[in-house]
Simulated assay, not measured.
Amino acid sequence: MSQQLIKSESAPFIHNAGIKHVKEGETFFKAMHNHPECAEILLILEGEGTYSIDGISYKVEPQSIVIYNQGVWHEERAVSNKPHKMLYAAFSNFKVEGLPDGHLVSKNVSPIAPIENFLLIEELFKELVKESESTDFESNWVARNLVGALLGLILRNIYKRGSTKKNSNKHKIIGEVKHYIQENYHQNITLEELAKISYISPYYLSHLFKELTGITPFQYLMQYRIEVSKHLLINSNSTINQISYQVGYQSETHFQNLFKKIVGVTPGKYRE
Rank of each mutant, 00 (worst) to 15 (best):
L205N: 02
V247L: 06
A11T: 12
L205I: 05
H231V: 14
S251C: 09
I173Q: 00
L42A: 00
F118Y: 15
G102I: 03
G25N: 08
K85Y: 10
E193M: 10
I181H: 13
R225G: 03
L87Q: 09
A143H: 04
Y185P: 01
V228S: 08
K107C: 09
E76A: 13
G162P: 04
S134L: 07
L191M: 10
F13W: 11
Q187W: 01
K23W: 05
K178V: 00
S238N: 14
S2W: 09
Y220N: 04
V177D: 07
L153E: 07
S201I: 01
L99I: 07
K178D: 02
I158R: 06
Q70E: 15
Y51F: 15
Q219A: 11
E227R: 13
V72A: 03
K210C: 06
T190E: 13
I197A: 07
N241Y: 13
Y58C: 04
V247S: 09
R161A: 14
C38G: 01
K107L: 13
K20A: 12
I112E: 03
L87C: 03
V22P: 00
E40R: 04
V147A: 05
T239A: 03
R271C: 10
L232P: 00
N69E: 09
Q3E: 14
G49M: 08
G55E: 11
I56W: 03
T266I: 07
V109T: 15
P62D: 06
L208H: 00
I6S: 02
A195D: 00
Q63R: 12
V177W: 02
N16A: 06
F209R: 06
I240G: 08
S80A: 14
F125Y: 13
C38M: 11
